[in-house]
Design a binder for these strands. Structure first.
Lengths: 147, 147
DNA sequence: TTCATAATTGACACCATTTGACACTATTTG
DNA sequence: CAAATAGTGTCAAATGGTGTCAATTATGAA
């Protein structure tokens, strides 16, 4: 099984994010480690199991020098931090990442198969709104998919 | 382990930049010296452990005479200054370098494996904004990397 | 539905790190 | 030389992070 589900969770007063039990179960069973590598992604954050992150890291480091490699290093690889779940199932995310995503109290955690996304409630509403508009404008595509 | 992480730090009223404890730990453990050679880099600054800087220096000095060697000497080697961390973990960066990077109060320090980048908050936002656009426009490339 | 159990959240004490401040010294400038 | 500016050392306050406990909320079984 892969990560799935959308969860409204909260951040405690020291910046720790609760990770839903179902996601922690998946981490433990499929990846043997209750920890996540968290990094920037658009106006929010993404998180990967550490073993998966290693692969991504290796792929980026193997890229030929150039602006694309630079961009991945600066925006994704460098800011990444491995965060372990504590006894309450919370992870401490670095302040610079919380600032980037505008996280303060109400947070949305989304299981997206191979990865996990983390958004502020506001940013989440904004992006789901935009995504919805995209789908509305493509009725044919939606029908083709079977929706 | 290599340098990593993105940190929002501040400059004191005499121009000293706080270096995050995790970066100082890495300097101490892997390089045996809590000091950094800082120099110009694009619209910001880069810093290397002194031992690493020696190697770079030697490489540049070994270049055949020509505009490229001149440029490296003028823009990178010459302005470089070794800065040691003081008791509070701050480094004093020369004024000419601070001016070059437009550093005044809010600064971003980024661990980038072998090197450390230092940007003003504004310059950093500009750079990451541009980089993010580059990544967004190449969804296929990002997917191929495993993101 | 009701109870038992698990999950999530809020809170606090403690420790580490970062920051602002100030006095003092050195260096530069007129 | 004297004044202004820049840099150094140090202290103490403020902020941020960790571990832990307990209250609250959600979930599932009888």
């Amino acid at each position: 099984m892969k990560f799935s589900g959308e969860f409204n969770v909260s951040i405690d007063l020291k910046g720790r994010i609760s990770i839903p039990a179902s996601i922690r179960d998946e981490l433990r069973q499929a990846y043997r480690k209750e920890s996540l590598v968290v990094t920037r992604y658009k106006q929010g954050l993404v998180a990967y199991p550490p073993s998966r992150w290693e692969e991504i890291c290796a792929n980026v480091l193997a890229m030929p020098p150039g602006p694309n490699r630079e961009a991945n290093l600066r925006n994704r690889i460098a800011p990444a931090k491995e965060c372990s779940c504590n006894a309450q199932g919370r992870i401490q995310v670095p302040q610079s990442l919380r600032d980037h995503a505008g996280l303060d109290k109400d947070v949305v955690v989304i299981g997206m198969f191979e990865k996990i996304e983390i958004w502020s409630r506001q940013a989440h509403q904004r992006i789901t709104g935009e995504s919805e508009a995209l789908l509305d404008d493509d009725a044919q595509g939606q029908a083709d998919l079977g929706f």
